[in-house]
Write a protein that binds this DNA or RNA. Sequence first.
DNA 1: TTTAGTGGTCATGAAAAACTGACTTATTTT
DNA 2: AAAATAAGTCAGTTTTTCATGACCACTAAA
Lengths: 103, 103
Amino acid sequence: MTTKKNTEENKTCPAQALLKQLSGKWKPEIFRLAVDGPLRFSILLRQIEGSNKQTLSVALRELEEVGLLEKVVIKEKPLHIEYYLTENGKSLIPVFQQLENLG
Amino acid sequence: MTTKKNTEENKTCPAQALLKQLSGKWKPEIFRLAVDGPLRFSILLRQIEGSNKQTLSVALRELEEVGLLEKVVIKEKPLHIEYYLTENGKSLIPVFQQLENLG
DNA sequence: TTTAGTGGTCATGAAAAACTGACTTATTTT
DNA sequence: AAAATAAGTCAGTTTTTCATGACCACTAAA
């Protein structure tokens, strides 16, 4: 079963998986903001108007799960959490730049 | 209303729109196949296993609507329809290539 | 000690996307 | 003339995504 599923998924085009990781509400937006520096939940929530806790929470978790973002607990003065682009995530930056040059 | 909607959409990151055009089941797959040459409905249906008429039909129509594919009636011997990549669609090829190099 | 901020989860419901199977119209092959 | 192929459409159902509002644990400030 597991093997079969993997086999079937591998048949699809390589870009499909990548595209899927970034599809979902606010994910491209979140990614782009992450390029500029670490993200914080409550700030994102205010920054992205029209968004909501639940959707952002899920989007951040999923971006983390696919290895594009990393969640870091900052144990300093105002104890909080920051999301960083991983190396893997950074490798997508040129793709994004290309996309933006087309728009 | 229309103005407001546009304004709001323009706020989002430029890549978001492009990404959205290619998000949806089988769309990246269809796009990639279109790079290799014109597509035909019934052939796609056999080629992409797990797909179905309805979903493919909608995907093709939407790819056409956003101007990535063009639908052409071929009035030769076995009268049929072919979908071609538009110039606009071709401009996305390098983005795809980059994506594939990451996988 | 009440209040505010941070970073969420949970249950629920509405809306959008995808799947299924039956049916269609026109052409082509047998 | 009957059967097959091509390219779909349509209605109905299921699945997946999104959105809402209530709630929670912890910290920090007033």
